[in-house]
Design a binder for these strands. Structure first.
Length: 137
DNA sequence: TTTCTCACA
DNA sequence: TGTGAGTA
């Protein structure tokens, strides 16, 4: 029917995804443990990733480079899911349907305002200081 | 051969 | 996170 189905078709093995994302199998499995990606299982319990999963992993990788830790990324992903739901619920305009989920400063701001810090009540924040300073002008 | 889980330097 | 063990 539409791209959504294709984008969620489990097609890639660990090795493929590893090459595509530059992440190690260990890392990918670790991110899965933390609900950052939900690859399908097939055959002998082998992970099968979809285009969406690969895209998510690339995003995670990018965020990691920006200095956002796993906790922060979880919130980013969660927020994106919310936005996606709203989009689908509101209208089905082809232009806004499958836009690239690039993380902009604006989105980060939204995250921070949503109380992203609540996850860092263990003594430190969810996002590293360097990244935070950009929003404390 | 590849991937999986579990455990540990 | 990396790596090795023992499977499937």
């Amino acid at each position: 029917m539409d791209d959504r189905i294709r984008r969620n078709m489990p097609l890639f093995s660990m090795s493929i995804v590893g090459e595509l994302t530059g992440l190690t199998a260990r890392q990918i499995r670790y991110y899965e443990e933390h609900q950052l990606v939900q690859p399908e299982r097939s055959k002998g319990n082998r992970r099968l990733f979809s285009f969406n999963d690969v895209e998510k992993l690339l995003e995670i990788k990018a965020l990691l480079d920006k200095g956002v830790n796993l906790a922060g990324i979880q919130h980013v992903l969660q927020m994106k899911e919310n936005e996606a739901s709203v989009e689908v619920a509101e209208t089905q305009t082809p232009e806004t349907d499958y836009k690239k989920p690039d993380l902009s400063d604006d989105e980060l701001r939204k995250l921070l305002k949503q109380g992203l810090f609540s996850a860092g009540k263990h003594g430190k924040t969810s996002i590293i200081q360097g990244e935070l300073s950009r929003f404390f002008h």
